[in-house]
Design a protein around this nucleic acid. Structure first.
Lengths: 206, 206
DNA sequence: GTCTATAGAGTGATAGAC
DNA sequence: GTCTATCACTCTATAGAC
Protein backbone atom coordinates (compact mmCIF):
# COMPACT_ATOMS: atom_id res chain seq x y z
CA UNK A 1 0.00 0.00 0.00
CA UNK A 2 2.97 2.29 -0.57
CA UNK A 3 1.81 4.49 -3.42
CA UNK A 4 -1.16 6.81 -3.75
CA UNK A 5 -2.67 4.95 -6.72
CA UNK A 6 -3.15 1.85 -4.55
CA UNK A 7 -4.43 3.90 -1.62
CA UNK A 8 -7.11 5.50 -3.82
CA UNK A 9 -8.00 2.06 -5.13
CA UNK A 10 -8.48 0.51 -1.71
CA UNK A 11 -10.47 3.48 -0.39
CA UNK A 12 -12.66 3.25 -3.49
CA UNK A 13 -13.25 -0.48 -2.91
CA UNK A 14 -14.26 0.23 0.69
CA UNK A 15 -16.68 3.00 -0.29
CA UNK A 16 -18.16 1.30 -3.37
CA UNK A 17 -18.82 -1.73 -1.16
CA UNK A 18 -20.41 0.23 1.67
CA UNK A 19 -22.37 2.88 -0.21
CA UNK A 20 -22.43 1.76 -3.83
CA UNK A 21 -20.69 3.23 -6.88
CA UNK A 22 -23.21 5.93 -7.76
CA UNK A 23 -23.69 7.00 -4.16
CA UNK A 24 -19.94 7.46 -3.70
CA UNK A 25 -18.41 10.75 -4.86
CA UNK A 26 -14.89 11.48 -6.02
CA UNK A 27 -14.51 13.97 -3.17
CA UNK A 28 -15.28 11.26 -0.61
CA UNK A 29 -12.62 9.02 -2.14
CA UNK A 30 -10.19 11.95 -2.08
CA UNK A 31 -10.99 12.72 1.55
CA UNK A 32 -10.40 9.10 2.53
CA UNK A 33 -7.11 9.12 0.61
CA UNK A 34 -5.96 12.35 2.25
CA UNK A 35 -5.73 14.40 -0.94
CA UNK A 36 -7.84 16.91 -2.89
CA UNK A 37 -10.37 15.59 -5.38
CA UNK A 38 -8.56 17.07 -8.39
CA UNK A 39 -5.53 14.94 -7.52
CA UNK A 40 -7.52 11.77 -8.12
CA UNK A 41 -7.49 12.59 -11.82
CA UNK A 42 -3.73 12.42 -11.96
CA UNK A 43 -3.96 8.68 -11.15
CA UNK A 44 -7.24 7.72 -12.84
CA UNK A 45 -8.71 9.53 -15.79
CA UNK A 46 -12.31 9.16 -14.58
CA UNK A 47 -14.45 7.66 -11.85
CA UNK A 48 -15.59 4.99 -14.27
CA UNK A 49 -12.01 4.00 -15.08
CA UNK A 50 -11.36 3.52 -11.38
CA UNK A 51 -14.35 1.17 -11.18
CA UNK A 52 -13.27 -0.68 -14.30
CA UNK A 53 -9.71 -1.24 -13.04
CA UNK A 54 -11.12 -2.81 -9.85
CA UNK A 55 -13.51 -5.11 -11.73
CA UNK A 56 -10.97 -6.13 -14.36
CA UNK A 57 -8.32 -7.17 -11.83
CA UNK A 58 -10.89 -9.09 -9.79
CA UNK A 59 -12.17 -11.04 -12.78
CA UNK A 60 -8.67 -11.82 -14.06
CA UNK A 61 -7.56 -13.12 -10.66
CA UNK A 62 -10.73 -15.19 -10.32
CA UNK A 63 -10.24 -17.07 -13.58
CA UNK A 64 -6.51 -17.47 -12.96
CA UNK A 65 -7.31 -18.95 -9.54
CA UNK A 66 -9.79 -21.44 -10.98
CA UNK A 67 -7.38 -22.72 -13.62
CA UNK A 68 -4.71 -23.14 -10.98
CA UNK A 69 -7.08 -25.01 -8.68
CA UNK A 70 -8.09 -27.44 -11.41
CA UNK A 71 -4.59 -28.20 -12.72
CA UNK A 72 -3.54 -31.79 -12.14
CA UNK A 73 -6.94 -33.07 -10.95
CA UNK A 74 -8.41 -35.86 -13.09
CA UNK A 75 -11.52 -37.14 -11.27
CA UNK A 76 -14.59 -35.07 -12.20
CA UNK A 77 -16.14 -35.02 -8.74
CA UNK A 78 -12.85 -33.82 -7.25
CA UNK A 79 -12.73 -31.16 -9.95
CA UNK A 80 -16.18 -29.83 -9.12
CA UNK A 81 -15.32 -29.88 -5.44
CA UNK A 82 -12.08 -27.96 -6.05
CA UNK A 83 -13.87 -25.44 -8.28
CA UNK A 84 -16.67 -24.80 -5.79
CA UNK A 85 -14.29 -24.64 -2.85
CA UNK A 86 -12.00 -22.20 -4.64
CA UNK A 87 -14.91 -20.06 -5.81
CA UNK A 88 -16.29 -19.72 -2.29
CA UNK A 89 -12.82 -19.07 -0.86
CA UNK A 90 -12.06 -16.35 -3.40
CA UNK A 91 -15.39 -14.62 -2.82
CA UNK A 92 -15.12 -14.66 0.96
CA UNK A 93 -11.47 -13.62 1.09
CA UNK A 94 -11.95 -10.76 -1.36
CA UNK A 95 -15.47 -10.04 -0.25
CA UNK A 96 -15.66 -6.35 -1.08
CA UNK A 97 -14.22 -6.45 -4.61
CA UNK A 98 -16.44 -9.40 -5.46
CA UNK A 99 -19.54 -7.74 -4.11
CA UNK A 100 -18.79 -4.72 -6.31
CA UNK A 101 -18.07 -6.97 -9.30
CA UNK A 102 -21.55 -8.44 -8.94
CA UNK A 103 -23.57 -5.32 -8.28
CA UNK A 104 -21.96 -2.39 -10.06
CA UNK A 105 -21.68 -3.52 -13.67
CA UNK A 106 -24.22 -0.86 -14.60
CA UNK A 107 -21.68 1.81 -13.74
CA UNK A 108 -19.48 0.81 -16.68
CA UNK A 109 -19.38 2.28 -20.19
CA UNK A 110 -20.68 0.03 -22.96
CA UNK A 111 -17.17 -1.07 -24.04
CA UNK A 112 -15.95 -1.76 -20.52
CA UNK A 113 -19.14 -3.60 -19.74
CA UNK A 114 -18.51 -5.86 -22.71
CA UNK A 115 -14.97 -6.63 -21.51
CA UNK A 116 -16.10 -7.65 -18.03
CA UNK A 117 -19.05 -9.71 -19.25
CA UNK A 118 -16.73 -11.57 -21.63
CA UNK A 119 -14.46 -12.46 -18.73
CA UNK A 120 -17.44 -13.57 -16.68
CA UNK A 121 -18.70 -15.73 -19.53
CA UNK A 122 -15.30 -17.37 -19.92
CA UNK A 123 -15.32 -18.25 -16.23
CA UNK A 124 -18.88 -19.57 -16.36
CA UNK A 125 -18.08 -21.76 -19.34
CA UNK A 126 -15.35 -23.58 -17.45
CA UNK A 127 -17.86 -24.30 -14.70
CA UNK A 128 -20.54 -25.42 -17.12
CA UNK A 129 -18.03 -27.72 -18.79
CA UNK A 130 -17.39 -29.45 -15.48
CA UNK A 131 -21.07 -29.99 -14.79
CA UNK A 132 -21.65 -31.25 -18.33
CA UNK A 133 -18.74 -33.69 -18.03
CA UNK A 134 -19.99 -34.98 -14.68
CA UNK A 135 -23.41 -35.54 -16.21
CA UNK A 136 -22.02 -37.36 -19.24
CA UNK A 137 -19.91 -39.62 -17.03
CA UNK A 138 -23.01 -40.48 -14.98
CA UNK A 139 -21.54 -39.04 -11.78
CA UNK A 140 -24.28 -36.41 -11.67
CA UNK A 141 -27.99 -36.79 -12.48
CA UNK A 142 -29.45 -35.57 -15.78
CA UNK A 143 -29.54 -31.96 -14.60
CA UNK A 144 -30.07 -28.73 -16.54
CA UNK A 145 -26.48 -27.50 -16.97
CA UNK A 146 -27.19 -23.83 -17.67
CA UNK A 147 -29.71 -23.27 -14.90
CA UNK A 148 -27.69 -25.13 -12.31
CA UNK A 149 -24.41 -23.46 -13.22
CA UNK A 150 -26.01 -20.05 -12.70
CA UNK A 151 -27.55 -21.37 -9.50
CA UNK A 152 -24.29 -22.74 -8.15
CA UNK A 153 -22.26 -19.66 -9.01
CA UNK A 154 -24.70 -17.15 -7.58
CA UNK A 155 -25.17 -19.37 -4.56
CA UNK A 156 -21.48 -19.26 -3.70
CA UNK A 157 -21.09 -15.65 -4.76
CA UNK A 158 -23.88 -14.62 -2.43
CA UNK A 159 -21.65 -15.58 0.47
CA UNK A 160 -19.84 -12.31 -0.17
CA UNK A 161 -22.94 -10.36 0.87
CA UNK A 162 -23.46 -11.82 4.32
CA UNK A 163 -20.06 -13.27 5.31
CA UNK A 164 -18.67 -11.97 8.60
CA UNK A 165 -14.87 -12.49 8.74
CA UNK A 166 -14.85 -12.76 12.55
CA UNK A 167 -17.94 -14.96 12.73
CA UNK A 168 -18.82 -18.47 13.87
CA UNK A 169 -17.37 -20.35 10.89
CA UNK A 170 -14.08 -20.15 8.98
CA UNK A 171 -13.87 -19.69 5.23
CA UNK A 172 -12.98 -23.36 4.71
CA UNK A 173 -15.85 -24.59 6.89
CA UNK A 174 -18.32 -22.55 4.88
CA UNK A 175 -16.76 -23.73 1.62
CA UNK A 176 -17.14 -27.35 2.78
CA UNK A 177 -20.82 -26.86 3.58
CA UNK A 178 -21.42 -25.44 0.11
CA UNK A 179 -19.34 -28.15 -1.53
CA UNK A 180 -21.40 -30.94 0.05
CA UNK A 181 -24.71 -29.24 -0.57
CA UNK A 182 -23.91 -28.68 -4.24
CA UNK A 183 -22.47 -32.11 -5.00
CA UNK A 184 -25.50 -33.72 -3.33
CA UNK A 185 -27.80 -31.48 -5.33
CA UNK A 186 -26.05 -32.45 -8.56
CA UNK A 187 -26.26 -36.17 -7.81
CA UNK A 188 -29.95 -35.95 -6.85
CA UNK A 189 -29.98 -39.44 -5.37
CA UNK A 190 -33.11 -39.08 -3.25
CA UNK A 191 -35.18 -36.57 -5.12
CA UNK A 192 -38.70 -37.84 -5.93
CA UNK A 193 -40.73 -36.87 -8.98
CA UNK A 194 -38.95 -36.03 -12.18
CA UNK A 195 -35.55 -36.25 -10.58
CA UNK A 196 -36.19 -39.76 -9.30
CA UNK A 197 -37.38 -40.90 -12.72
CA UNK A 198 -34.24 -39.53 -14.30
CA UNK A 199 -32.17 -41.21 -11.67
CA UNK A 200 -33.86 -44.56 -12.25
CA UNK A 201 -33.16 -44.29 -15.97
CA UNK A 202 -29.52 -43.80 -15.26
CA UNK A 203 -29.32 -46.74 -12.90
CA UNK A 204 -30.98 -49.02 -15.44
CA UNK A 205 -28.64 -47.85 -18.17
CA UNK A 206 -25.51 -48.78 -16.26
CA UNK B 1 -52.74 1.28 -14.16
CA UNK B 2 -55.57 3.78 -14.05
CA UNK B 3 -54.22 6.51 -11.81
CA UNK B 4 -51.02 8.55 -11.96
CA UNK B 5 -49.71 7.28 -8.62
CA UNK B 6 -49.56 3.74 -9.99
CA UNK B 7 -48.08 4.89 -13.31
CA UNK B 8 -45.25 6.69 -11.49
CA UNK B 9 -44.71 3.59 -9.39
CA UNK B 10 -44.42 1.24 -12.34
CA UNK B 11 -42.14 3.60 -14.28
CA UNK B 12 -39.95 3.86 -11.18
CA UNK B 13 -39.78 0.05 -10.88
CA UNK B 14 -38.72 -0.20 -14.50
CA UNK B 15 -36.00 2.46 -14.17
CA UNK B 16 -34.70 1.36 -10.76
CA UNK B 17 -34.40 -2.16 -12.19
CA UNK B 18 -32.63 -1.09 -15.35
CA UNK B 19 -30.38 1.71 -14.10
CA UNK B 20 -30.41 1.47 -10.33
CA UNK B 21 -31.95 3.78 -7.73
CA UNK B 22 -29.14 6.33 -7.46
CA UNK B 23 -28.59 6.47 -11.21
CA UNK B 24 -32.29 7.22 -11.82
CA UNK B 25 -33.42 10.83 -11.51
CA UNK B 26 -36.82 12.20 -10.60
CA UNK B 27 -36.98 13.97 -13.94
CA UNK B 28 -36.50 10.66 -15.79
CA UNK B 29 -39.38 9.14 -13.83
CA UNK B 30 -41.49 12.21 -14.62
CA UNK B 31 -40.62 12.02 -18.31
CA UNK B 32 -41.61 8.33 -18.42
CA UNK B 33 -44.86 9.13 -16.63
CA UNK B 34 -45.69 11.98 -19.01
CA UNK B 35 -45.69 14.76 -16.39
CA UNK B 36 -43.31 17.43 -15.05
CA UNK B 37 -40.94 16.48 -12.27
CA UNK B 38 -42.57 18.80 -9.74
CA UNK B 39 -45.80 16.82 -10.14
CA UNK B 40 -44.14 13.70 -8.77
CA UNK B 41 -44.07 15.39 -5.37
CA UNK B 42 -47.84 15.64 -5.26
CA UNK B 43 -47.98 11.80 -5.16
CA UNK B 44 -44.79 10.95 -3.23
CA UNK B 45 -43.11 13.22 -0.77
CA UNK B 46 -39.58 12.21 -1.80
CA UNK B 47 -37.63 9.90 -4.07
CA UNK B 48 -36.75 7.76 -1.06
CA UNK B 49 -40.42 7.38 -0.10
CA UNK B 50 -41.15 6.11 -3.60
CA UNK B 51 -38.43 3.48 -3.20
CA UNK B 52 -39.69 2.54 0.26
CA UNK B 53 -43.28 2.09 -0.91
CA UNK B 54 -42.09 -0.33 -3.61
CA UNK B 55 -39.97 -2.38 -1.21
CA UNK B 56 -42.57 -2.48 1.53
CA UNK B 57 -45.34 -3.76 -0.72
CA UNK B 58 -43.03 -6.39 -2.22
CA UNK B 59 -41.94 -7.73 1.17
CA UNK B 60 -45.49 -7.79 2.52
CA UNK B 61 -46.77 -9.69 -0.49
CA UNK B 62 -43.86 -12.14 -0.30
CA UNK B 63 -44.53 -13.14 3.31
CA UNK B 64 -48.28 -13.25 2.74
CA UNK B 65 -47.70 -15.56 -0.23
CA UNK B 66 -45.48 -17.93 1.77
CA UNK B 67 -48.00 -18.27 4.60
CA UNK B 68 -50.75 -18.99 2.10
CA UNK B 69 -48.63 -21.60 0.31
CA UNK B 70 -47.86 -23.43 3.55
CA UNK B 71 -51.40 -23.46 4.93
CA UNK B 72 -52.88 -26.94 5.20
CA UNK B 73 -49.67 -28.84 4.38
CA UNK B 74 -48.49 -31.20 7.12
CA UNK B 75 -45.57 -33.21 5.67
CA UNK B 76 -42.28 -31.35 6.14
CA UNK B 77 -40.79 -32.28 2.77
CA UNK B 78 -43.93 -31.08 1.02
CA UNK B 79 -43.71 -27.88 3.04
CA UNK B 80 -40.13 -27.17 1.96
CA UNK B 81 -41.04 -27.96 -1.62
CA UNK B 82 -44.01 -25.60 -1.50
CA UNK B 83 -41.93 -22.87 0.13
CA UNK B 84 -39.11 -23.14 -2.42
CA UNK B 85 -41.49 -23.39 -5.35
CA UNK B 86 -43.46 -20.36 -4.18
CA UNK B 87 -40.32 -18.36 -3.50
CA UNK B 88 -38.96 -18.99 -6.99
CA UNK B 89 -42.33 -18.31 -8.57
CA UNK B 90 -42.76 -15.01 -6.75
CA UNK B 91 -39.26 -13.83 -7.67
CA UNK B 92 -39.59 -14.71 -11.33
CA UNK B 93 -43.09 -13.33 -11.74
CA UNK B 94 -42.26 -10.05 -10.01
CA UNK B 95 -38.68 -10.01 -11.20
CA UNK B 96 -38.06 -6.28 -11.25
CA UNK B 97 -39.47 -5.41 -7.83
CA UNK B 98 -37.59 -8.29 -6.27
CA UNK B 99 -34.34 -7.35 -7.90
CA UNK B 100 -34.72 -3.84 -6.47
CA UNK B 101 -35.65 -5.22 -3.05
CA UNK B 102 -32.37 -7.13 -3.02
CA UNK B 103 -30.02 -4.47 -4.34
CA UNK B 104 -31.29 -1.05 -3.32
CA UNK B 105 -31.66 -1.28 0.45
CA UNK B 106 -28.83 1.24 0.78
CA UNK B 107 -31.06 3.90 -0.70
CA UNK B 108 -33.34 3.84 2.34
CA UNK B 109 -33.26 6.09 5.41
CA UNK B 110 -32.20 4.41 8.65
CA UNK B 111 -35.78 3.97 9.87
CA UNK B 112 -37.11 2.63 6.59
CA UNK B 113 -34.12 0.31 6.32
CA UNK B 114 -35.00 -1.10 9.73
CA UNK B 115 -38.61 -1.73 8.68
CA UNK B 116 -37.61 -3.67 5.55
CA UNK B 117 -34.89 -5.71 7.27
CA UNK B 118 -37.39 -6.69 9.97
CA UNK B 119 -39.76 -7.97 7.31
CA UNK B 120 -36.95 -9.85 5.61
CA UNK B 121 -35.91 -11.43 8.92
CA UNK B 122 -39.47 -12.54 9.62
CA UNK B 123 -39.59 -14.25 6.23
CA UNK B 124 -36.20 -15.90 6.72
CA UNK B 125 -37.21 -17.25 10.11
CA UNK B 126 -40.14 -19.12 8.64
CA UNK B 127 -37.77 -20.75 6.16
CA UNK B 128 -35.19 -21.58 8.83
CA UNK B 129 -37.92 -23.12 10.95
CA UNK B 130 -38.82 -25.48 8.11
CA UNK B 131 -35.22 -26.59 7.62
CA UNK B 132 -34.75 -27.05 11.36
CA UNK B 133 -37.93 -29.15 11.60
CA UNK B 134 -36.86 -31.32 8.67
CA UNK B 135 -33.51 -31.91 10.32
CA UNK B 136 -35.08 -32.79 13.68
CA UNK B 137 -37.46 -35.24 12.02
CA UNK B 138 -34.52 -36.90 10.27
CA UNK B 139 -35.87 -36.10 6.81
CA UNK B 140 -32.84 -33.91 6.11
CA UNK B 141 -29.20 -34.52 7.01
CA UNK B 142 -27.51 -32.74 9.91
CA UNK B 143 -27.05 -29.49 7.98
CA UNK B 144 -26.11 -25.99 9.15
CA UNK B 145 -29.52 -24.31 9.23
CA UNK B 146 -28.40 -20.67 9.09
CA UNK B 147 -25.86 -21.04 6.29
CA UNK B 148 -28.12 -23.20 4.17
CA UNK B 149 -31.18 -21.01 4.65
CA UNK B 150 -29.20 -18.01 3.35
CA UNK B 151 -27.85 -20.19 0.58
CA UNK B 152 -31.27 -21.46 -0.48
CA UNK B 153 -32.93 -18.05 -0.36
CA UNK B 154 -30.23 -16.21 -2.30
CA UNK B 155 -30.05 -19.11 -4.73
CA UNK B 156 -33.71 -18.79 -5.64
CA UNK B 157 -33.70 -15.02 -5.45
CA UNK B 158 -30.82 -14.86 -7.92
CA UNK B 159 -33.18 -16.21 -10.54
CA UNK B 160 -34.61 -12.70 -10.70
CA UNK B 161 -31.33 -11.40 -12.12
CA UNK B 162 -31.02 -13.67 -15.13
CA UNK B 163 -34.59 -14.90 -15.80
CA UNK B 164 -35.84 -14.25 -19.31
CA UNK B 165 -39.67 -14.31 -19.41
CA UNK B 166 -39.78 -15.47 -23.02
CA UNK B 167 -36.96 -17.98 -22.66
CA UNK B 168 -36.49 -21.72 -22.97
CA UNK B 169 -38.12 -22.71 -19.66
CA UNK B 170 -41.33 -21.72 -17.90
CA UNK B 171 -41.45 -20.40 -14.36
CA UNK B 172 -42.75 -23.71 -13.04
CA UNK B 173 -40.08 -25.73 -14.83
CA UNK B 174 -37.34 -23.59 -13.28
CA UNK B 175 -38.99 -23.82 -9.88
CA UNK B 176 -39.04 -27.63 -10.21
CA UNK B 177 -35.33 -27.75 -11.02
CA UNK B 178 -34.54 -25.64 -7.96
CA UNK B 179 -36.89 -27.67 -5.79
CA UNK B 180 -35.18 -30.97 -6.64
CA UNK B 181 -31.69 -29.53 -6.37
CA UNK B 182 -32.39 -28.06 -2.93
CA UNK B 183 -34.20 -31.05 -1.44
CA UNK B 184 -31.39 -33.34 -2.64
CA UNK B 185 -28.83 -31.00 -1.12
CA UNK B 186 -30.67 -30.93 2.19
CA UNK B 187 -31.05 -34.70 2.40
CA UNK B 188 -27.46 -35.60 1.71
CA UNK B 189 -25.50 -32.64 3.03
CA UNK B 190 -22.65 -33.66 5.32
CA UNK B 191 -21.16 -32.06 8.40
CA UNK B 192 -18.36 -29.52 7.81
CA UNK B 193 -14.90 -30.98 7.26
CA UNK B 194 -16.25 -34.29 6.02
CA UNK B 195 -16.20 -33.59 2.31
CA UNK B 196 -12.81 -35.06 1.50
CA UNK B 197 -13.15 -38.04 3.84
CA UNK B 198 -16.55 -38.87 2.42
CA UNK B 199 -15.39 -38.60 -1.13
CA UNK B 200 -12.33 -40.79 -0.43
CA UNK B 201 -14.60 -43.44 1.11
CA UNK B 202 -16.73 -43.44 -2.00
CA UNK B 203 -13.81 -43.83 -4.34
CA UNK B 204 -12.39 -46.69 -2.27
CA UNK B 205 -15.74 -48.48 -2.10
CA UNK B 206 -16.08 -48.65 -5.89
C1' DG C 1 2.25 14.85 -7.79
C1' DT C 2 -0.65 17.84 -5.43
C1' DC C 3 -2.81 22.17 -5.04
C1' DT C 4 -6.71 26.09 -5.68
C1' DA C 5 -10.32 27.60 -8.43
C1' DT C 6 -13.97 26.98 -11.35
C1' DA C 7 -16.63 25.50 -15.37
C1' DG C 8 -20.81 23.35 -16.73
C1' DA C 9 -24.31 20.44 -15.99
C1' DG C 10 -27.58 18.00 -13.26
C1' DT C 11 -29.81 16.95 -8.79
C1' DG C 12 -33.88 16.71 -5.23
C1' DA C 13 -37.14 19.53 -3.65
C1' DT C 14 -40.30 23.81 -2.94
C1' DA C 15 -43.40 28.00 -4.04
C1' DG C 16 -47.13 29.50 -5.99
C1' DA C 17 -50.12 30.11 -10.34
C1' DC C 18 -53.91 27.86 -12.63
C1' DG D 1 -53.54 17.55 -9.96
C1' DT D 2 -50.39 19.57 -12.94
C1' DC D 3 -47.84 23.46 -14.35
C1' DT D 4 -43.59 26.98 -14.61
C1' DA D 5 -39.86 28.82 -12.29
C1' DT D 6 -36.30 28.57 -9.24
C1' DC D 7 -33.49 27.62 -5.03
C1' DA D 8 -29.64 25.62 -3.07
C1' DC D 9 -26.66 22.28 -3.66
C1' DT D 10 -23.65 18.53 -5.47
C1' DC D 11 -21.49 16.28 -9.01
C1' DT D 12 -17.55 15.00 -12.49
C1' DA D 13 -13.97 16.89 -14.65
C1' DT D 14 -10.51 20.48 -16.26
C1' DA D 15 -7.04 24.54 -16.16
C1' DG D 16 -3.16 26.09 -14.62
C1' DA D 17 -0.05 27.44 -10.51
C1' DC D 18 3.57 25.46 -7.69
Amino acid sequence: MGNMKDTIRSIAIELFFRKGYFATSISEIAKGSGIQKASIYYHYKSKEELLFSILKATMDDLTHDLKENLAGIEDIESKIRAAVHGHVRFHLERQKENFIANSELRGLTAEHYRVIVEKRDEYEEIFQGLIRQGREQGVFADVDVKILSYAILTLCTAGASWFNPGGRLTVDEIADIYENFIVSGLKQGDAPGMARARHADQVLAR
